[in-house]
Structures are given as structure tokens and as C-alpha cells.
């Protein structure tokens, strides 16, 4: 008796479930067909902002195809003439070379020093716990004050760096005032400012490695250096590369530190693409040509980032 009753209730329930589910499906279909105004309203600000940025970007690209210049009454569409004129000049290729040299050497050196710094601070000796906040110090300074700070320190006449060098018996250095050393000095400033960024991210990566992994490596007989080279380095390589992607974008676009210290000089030695574009557009007031240079700069950044992201995905794929 009892069992039959339970059975009957079960069948009733199941059929009721089926009915309800078919009703639900109908309702879901109706909902899918109707426009969800609330979600649209929720994403509308993002779309508007995106469209605004895209409009500005395309306006800039359009500007690079015109002969817009300050004080010119009629603006004509001249196609790729700006690009042709720019590419023909030797200065442009100097700028491209300077941009590449600056970005590549800065990112490479920062990755190396950042790795060393992170490893040092992950070693957990007594002073690291006290000094950990200090790593962040250069990162929180505004780039313009970093530029002014180093300009005074690198003064060839009475800068402190020359004095410190003279203490260990090295003669005076012209730093940013000489065409041959200006680029190295700028890279040095960049390294001082942004190595902490690398150190921070790599430090986080090192903290993320499970201690069991290290222990397993040790049990299997890996010594300190081998553990680092074969266990830790492959595991933190994605972190290094993602930090390098960010820094490469920023240093290919680097404007504030370079313009704040040398303004592209002395001569032509440090005029990277962004600085040259700024000078062309806002000091020579040839907005069209400046926009063309900026578009070229954007393409360089796009290309560099594309390569780096591909590399990053490759490494991450191999690790995981």
C-alpha cells in the first residue's frame, strides 16, 4: 500500500516537473527574444566611452592624411603624402632607431634587475621585511619630477653623480649633455624608475610558487642554482613576460621622462618618435605631419606588443 502511494506521488511529481520545465522554456525563449533594456543600459556608458575614444583615434588618423597646419585657412585631404615625406627623411629613421634602442634596452635591463631584486627580497633575510616598502618609492613619484630630479643630479658641472664617480676615481661624465651618453643616461633613469615594477610582479610570481615544488626539487637533488634555473625560472617566466609587455608599451610611448630631461637633444640623439611627434605638431605647428608620426608610433607599439603577447602565450602554454 505504502509503496504504491509513494510511487504514485513520484509519477505525479515528475509529470508536474515536465510541465513546469516546458513552460519555463517557453518563457525563456520569450525573454531571449525581448530586448533586455536593463542590461543595455548597464553597458551603454562603456560603449559610449569606447566609441568616443575610437572617434578621437580615427580623427587623429584622418588628421594625419591632411595637410593641417596652424594658420592654414583651407585643409586639404592629401592621402599618404605626410607619411611619404616623413619616411624619406633621415631624422625619422633616427627616431625609430632611438625608440627601439630605448625601449628594448630599458625593458631588458629592467627585467634582469627586477628579477635580481625580486629574488633578493624573496630570500626572506631580516632586512627585507623592513625595506620592502622602499621598493615602491620610485614608482609613486610623478615622471616629471623624476625627470627634474635626475636632470639636477646629472648636471655635468656640479651634479652629485659626477661627485660620486670622482670619489672612486672616475673622471667627469657629461651624462645627458653629450650626444653619445644621453641615451644611456635616459635608459639609466628609466631603469631606476621602473625596475621596482618588474620586481613587484616577479616577487608576486615567486610567492605564488608552491613550496612543495621547491621541496620536491630539493629531494630530487637539485642544488640552489639548478632549482632557480630549471624550476623557478620557467614558472615565473609568464610573470616576467607580462610585466615586459606592459613596460614595452609604456617605454615605446615614453614621453615625459625624455622630454623632461633632454627634450630630444642634444642634437638628435634622444628624439624618440613621441618626442619628435610632439615637437612637429606643437612646436612647428604642423599638426598633420605630427599626427602621421603619432600613427607610426602607434603601429610600432602595436607590432611590439603583438610579438610580446604571442611570446607570453607561448611560454604560458608551455608552462601550464
Amino acid at each position: 500500500m505504502d509503496l504504491q502511494g509513494i510511487d504514485a506521488i513520484g509519477t505525479l511529481q515528475s509529470s508536474a516537473d515536465q510541465l513546469a520545465s516546458s513552460k519555463n522554456e517557453q518563457a525563456q525563449k520569450a525573454e531571449q527574444n525581448a530586448l533586455d533594456w536593463w542590461s543595455l543600459a548597464a553597458i551603454a556608458p562603456a560603449i559610449i566611452i569606447l566609441l568616443g575614444f575610437l572617434f578621437l583615434f580615427f580623427y587623429g588618423v584622418f588628421q594625419s592624411l591632411t595637410d593641417l597646419k596652424f594658420g592654414r585657412p583651407v585643409v586639404r585631404f592629401i592621402g599618404f603624402t605626410n607619411y611619404e615625406m616623413v619616411i624619406k627623411t633621415q631624422d625619422f629613421w633616427n627616431s625609430v632607431r632611438a625608440t627601439m634602442a630605448y625601449a628594448c634596452s630599458a625593458v631588458l635591463a629592467e627585467a634582469l634587475f627586477g628579477l635580481a631584486l625580486a629574488k633578493l627580497f624573496a630570500s626572506g633575510v631580516f632586512l627585507t621585511r623592513l625595506m620592502r616598502p622602499v621598493i615602491l618609492l620610485p614608482l609613486v613619484l610623478p615622471p616629471m619630477s623624476v625627470a627634474l630630479m635626475w636632470t639636477t643630479m646629472m648636471d655635468p658641472q656640479n651634479g652629485i653623480l659626477n661627485y660620486l664617480l670622482s670619489l672612486i676615481g672616475i673622471g667627469r661624465f657629461a651624462w645627458i649633455s653629450d650626444a653619445s651618453t644621453a641615451m644611456c643616461s635616459l635608459v639609466l633613469i628609466d631603469i631606476w624608475t621602473y625596475t621596482p615594477f618588474f620586481a613587484l610582479i616577479i616577487f608576486a610570481g615567486l610567492q605564488g610558487i608552491n613550496d612543495e615544488v621547491r621541496e620536491a626539487a630539493r629531494v630530487n637533488g637539485a642544488r640552489g642554482w639548478a632549482t632557480f634555473l630549471h624550476i623557478e625560472l620557467p614558472l615565473i617566466a609568464p610573470y616576467i613576460l607580462i610585466a615586459a609587455v606592459f613596460r614595452l608599451i609604456e617605454s615605446l610611448n615614453q614621453f615625459d621622462i625624455i622630454f623632461g630631461t633632454t627634450q630630444g637633444g642634444p642634437g638628435d640623439s634622444t628624439s624618440v618618435l613621441s618626442v619628435r611627434a610632439y615637437i612637429t605638431a606643437f612646436q612647428n605647428l604642423a599638426f598633420g605631419r605630427g599626427a602621421a608620426l603619432m600613427v607610426v608610433n602607434w603601429m610600432v607599439v602595436l607590432l611590439g606588443t603583438f610579438v610580446m603577447v604571442r611570446l607570453w602565450r607561448l611560454v604560458r602554454h608551455r608552462v601550464s
Binding site: 631584486l117 633578493l120 627580497f121 633575510v125 632586512l127 627585507t128 625595506m131 622602499v134 621598493i135 618609492l137 620610485p138 631606476w192 621596482p196
Partner: peptide, 10 residues
């Protein structure tokens, strides 16, 4: 080494 790094940074 930590002291040296701190000095360079500060």
C-alpha cells in the same frame, strides 16, 4: 645587498 639596493632606490 638589501641595504645597497635600498640606498640606490632612496
Amino acid at each position: 645587498l638589501v641595504v645597497a639596493c635600498t640606498l640606490i632606490l632612496t
